[in-house]
Write a protein that binds this DNA or RNA. Structure first.
Lengths: 329, 329
DNA sequence: GCGCGAGGTTGAAACGTTTCGAAGCGATTG
DNA sequence: CAATCGCTTCGAAACGTTTCAACCTCGCGC
């Protein structure tokens, strides 16, 4: 591999001259610089990332930590992060899983963005304590080296429940999220608040884990809730994946119709929701914006500028999985 | 940031002793080693990735280059790569876009896996020439530093066409892929071969770009093909995304029924296909396996072992977007 | 003719590791 | 008792950059 030293030798100048030339310093005479650049080019020189990193103490890389590579929404999110970082001459590197967390303390990145409930708080705080810059998307953490971009879960969950209530439903089942999830906790809390405001409503909470399987599993209880009451029930799944699981259960195992016997709304507006028949009602927000905000925060933190927690707003998407319930009289 | 030097000072030993101790060398007396380890731990020492990389000339990182972060199938693919790499103590880093390609010549990775038709051949060959290890998933490239894991596109496309012919269809439209795509080229070639074996079949090729929009656009021509012939037509979309676009067009803009007037088959078996109504017929293969094979090859290349091109096999998934056509007599 | 400043170039240290060769030292051997 | 050995430790070089401080060589003004 050709190094700066080889170029220096070939050009008959010192190593430092080459370095200055390559970095476009104006200390170097124009002709010399151009001669060096030409030689470097001809020899196919590329600076050694690690060496530069070691000396400059920056990598111009930002790591993004996800729970897995499956999420239906990572596409837009990552695109948002990438574009915004690119604008500032940073590159995005996507990681997943506990093993690759080592890259944070090893200073592979100038900062990391976290969207992974499995990443323990204490570990994050430890990194922050050691001076690593973090932007966190899935929890609230107070630390000078941590900044937050959070979803407006409360508004979303409230919208969802109120949408069901508005249709005249008075029996509501909510399928929850996995243990450690901040978003699930927030949404569930808002659900409770919304429901408690309506005294006549019968409310029930079902366990869930943000995946299709747990929606499918909840389907049974939902079906029996309809059977026992004999009138339409409203179901809010804390994310779309579970709502799709519910639909699958009802289609495969019962003769209940979504949008008639069971009124169903999800959260996230993943691509699949648009293709469900009936189209799934859900809570939408801009993944791209979420990502872009995170990237912007990261860039600011690295530059040492002050940053404030940002919020991503949500809106209701109607779908015919939820319809007006005929009045009983 | 605490370095090996700080530990040495605190432990009252030399830098090299600390290094040996940390790396578990048996040159160091057990007690000393444990004392040093304890101190390192207490001080929260983590080796500096770049420094180690500079000296050891390896990063234990493998980069994976994708066209974008959207692909519906990256999930399983990346999971496959990650697991297989993890087993060998490598970490996966996912990149996308031209900017981040710089990391290859900068030696950020011990090797890179490519699935991005936008990555030019010449650039890949240049890197290979400079000694970088590459595993390529989306083209055939001959170079000692490049190895291949390829999809059996030919078998897949042949299966798809024959499935349509088997149903008694004699008018076939094929929606193609984007310009530079190796997979699209291969599939289309196999289509031609399969169709030419059947003299009575009317065949037509439509432009496509592997996205929903181009499927939607092809819908118009497909509808008019049915209108003009008055009998069922078979359509093979070179990937599922486009097939879904076709379904959308037919549903929104015509009264033609998929599986009746238009018989439709895709390629890739993405998750969405399973949820389409009617269920989309398609060509399936194991993404996870594809990824795992790529990772395995990469590991072998890095170890300097000989590697051979691998193939990923495919199978037909029936769906009711394709049905038997009633005989005319 | 001397000092001075500017412009261009260089040497050397530093970043944080790894690792080779050697040194110190007590025990063993001939 | 000297040579040798094995075990543990150490010093120093090396990896490829960046960058500070110093240096040289002009031409200029006095």
């Amino acid at each position: 591999m050709v190094s700066i030293k080889d170029i220096a030798k070939k050009a008959g100048v010192s190593i430092s001259t080459v370095s200055y030339a390559l970095n476009g310093s104006d200390r170097i005479m124009k002709e010399t610089r151009e001669r060096i650049l030409a030689i470097a080019n001809e020899m196919g020189y590329v600076p050694h990332g690690a060496a530069r990193m070691l000396k400059k103490r920056e990598s111009r890389l930002v790591g993004m930590y996800l729970t897995d590579y499956y999420g239906h929404f990572y596409g837009d999110l990552l695109q948002g992060v990438k574009e915004e970082l690119g604008r500032r001459d940073y590159d995005l590197v996507v990681c997943s899983g506990a093993r690759s967390r080592r890259m944070i303390p090893e200073r592979t990145f100038d900062g990391a963005i976290i969207l992974d409930a499995r990443f323990p708080d204490e570990e994050l705080l430890q990194y922050a304590d050691r001076g690593h810059k973090l932007v966190v998307l899935d929890r609230e953490l107070q630390h000078p080296n941590v900044n937050l971009v959070l979803l407006d879960n409360k508004a979303g969950a409230t919208l969802a429940i109120e949408h069901l209530l508005d249709q005249g439903l008075d029996r509501i089942l909510v399928v929850g999220g996995p243990e450690g999830s901040y978003d699930a906790r927030q949404r569930m809390r808002a659900v409770h608040q919304a429901v408690e405001r309506e005294p006549g409503v019968v409310f029930e909470e079902l366990p869930g884990a943000f995946d299709k399987a747990s929606g499918y599993a909840a389907g049974e209880r939902i079906a029996s809730a309809f059977e026992s009451g004999g009138k339409p029930v409203g179901v809010f799944c804390l994310n779309d994946d579970m709502a799709i699981g519910v639909i699958e259960y009802l289609e495969e195992r019962t003769s209940l119709a979504v949008g008639e016997h069971v009124h169903l709304i999800g959260f996230d507006n993943i691509e699949l929701s648009r293709y469900m028949r009936p189209r799934l009602a859900t809570i939408d927000y801009s993944m791209r914006k979420w990502g872009a905000l995170a990237a912007e925060q990261m860039a600011k933190m690295i530059r040492g500028e002050p940053v404030e927690t940002e919020r991503v707003y949500v809106r209701l998407v109607e779908g015919n999985s939820v319809k007006r319930v005929a009045s009983e009289q």
